[in-house]
Amino acid sequence: MPLWLEAVICVLLVLGSLFALVGAIGLYRLPDFFTRLHGPTKATTLGVGGVVLGSMLFFSSQGEGGSLHEILVMLFLFITAPVSAHMLAKAALQERLPVIPKTRGKPWD
């Protein structure tokens, strides 16, 4: 494997896992449920997307021919993450979870 490709893979993996960490930190330290929802839906999805992209490059450089099937995992995550976030937000709205007082605008009943 050429050095530059290895460097690209390393950068993708590190950036990806750092983004996933940011998502987890957001989940851990933000004050209410609706703000916590932001970390996992965006940061974690992109983070894992980066890791999977790195893995795709790695396996493409290993064997003969490309290895594109990791794209499926990435595509699936990007399609499903908003859906599960939306469902959870609806459930939280229905349970009337508390929001921090600074929040402007009112959630629906």
């Binding site: 983004f19 940011v22 930190i25 957001g26 330290r29 933000l30 004050p31 209410d32 609706f34 703000t35 932001h38 970390g39 965006k42 940061a43 992109l46 929001v99 921090i100 600074k102 929040t103 402007r104 605008g105 009112k106 959630p107």
Partner: peptide
């Protein structure tokens, strides 16, 4: 936009909590 959004969210998550101004918008 997704990549940019993530950088933005990362800054908000790691920054001080007092600076957030969340809102429900219709």
């Amino acid at each position: 936009d997704i990549v940019v959004a993530n950088l933005h969210v990362a800054r908000l998550v790691l920054g001080p909590k007092g600076r957030l101004s969340p809102a429900f918008v219709e």
